[in-house]
């Protein structure tokens, strides 16, 4: 609604196309802090980093959130997903070496909409009242970190390189959305590995979960069939959301990806970018605009 995409079908293409202006806008939003009403900084943060603006979030693909004027279909769908996720989370047993509040969002192939799903799910969860931390575990080009224009900011890499518990809260970047904060992948540390070993990432995730109790931690991971992180993260995440792009990803790929994240006992599927509207699927009965609140409120 706020972001009117070009008619190109793919998110990545759309993102790439809009990358330049987004980055520019992001910097503009980041450098002059007068863009949006500044949210209250986390109380325990000694060096409160500048919050990420709504424009950057929208440019990165945010489709829902507290700033939404009216209900959207995607918003409703994400609401359903977030409710289901929370229900699952509440039903999980407490285990050692497993962060039950961590949700691993992954997919079989790149470009299926992991970042979109993770960002929007995190926004929906935050809007629903739970403090939410979105962690970008995928550091490659075009990832959420880059889309949000925080590639140079400290993040996961810093956390891995400097394993101090107190650092977590300082590294987390708040956003324009209330209760939603983001932990970027972070800039390359001098002397550190360009790509973080999976083992270190899992340890970092456990530390984050320990450092931020009461937070829902959503991990935006690279694709299963391309990297090893999801497989390692599945061992510590409370549940896995496998994003499946409609009309593209083959069943065999999905099954192979599911095999890789088998370490997590709770595997769930999300169909993304569904175009075929059927009568017996959610939202099949059109006219959701009728459920929109009066525009005056």
């Amino acid at each position: 609604m706020t972001h009117v995409p070009t008619p190109r079908p793919h998110l990545i293409e759309r993102a790439v196309q809009t990358l330049g202006p987004t980055l520019l806008g992001g910097r503009q939003a980041a450098v002059p802090p007068a863009g949006a009403p500044p949210p209250p900084p986390p109380p325990s943060a000694p060096l409160p980093p500048a919050p990420i603006g709504l424009e950057a979030l929208h440019a990165a693909g945010l489709a829902v959130g507290s700033s939404g004027v009216s209900r959207s279909r995607v918003g409703e769908e994400l609401g359903v997903i977030h409710q289901a996720m929370l229900r699952t989370m509440r039903g999980l047993p407490q285990e050692e070496q497993r962060a039950s509040r961590a949700v691993l969002v992954t997919s079989a192939r790149p470009g299926e909409g992991k970042s979109f799903t993770a960002l929007n799910l995190a926004a929906a969860t935050a809007a629903g009242g739970s403090p939410t931390l979105l962690v970008d575990v995928d550091g490659k080009r075009g990832s959420l970190t880059e889309l949000l224009g925080v590639a140079e900011a400290p993040g996961l890499r810093t956390l891995v390189a400097d394993p101090r518990a107190a650092a977590v809260a300082a590294l987390v970047r708040p956003t324009a959305e209330p209760r939603l904060s983001i932990l970027p992948y972070g800039a390359v540390q001098p002397g550190g590995p360009p790509v973080l070993p999976a083992q270190m990432i899992t340890e970092a995730v456990l530390r984050i979960a320990a450092a931020l109790p009461g937070h829902v931690i959503i991990l935006d991971s690279p694709p299963c069939l391309a990297t090893s992180e999801p497989s390692a993260l599945a061992a510590v995440a409370g549940q896995v959301l496998m994003v499946v792009e409609a009309e593209r990803t083959q069943r065999a790929e999905v099954e192979a990806a599911l095999d890789l994240v088998d370490a997590c006992p709770v595997l769930q599927l999300v169909l993304n970018r569904a175009r075929l509207v059927t009568g017996n699927s959610f939202g099949g009965y059109g006219g959701y605009g009728t459920y929109a609140p009066p525009s005056g409120s």
């Binding site: 070009t6 693909g61 995607v74 769908e77 996720m85 799903t117 599927l269 993304n272 970018r273 939202g283």
Partner: peptide, 8 residues
């Protein structure tokens, strides 16, 4: 747990 419609 859900399906997300295409945004565009």
């Amino acid at each position: 747990i859900g399906a997300v419609s295409a945004l565009d």
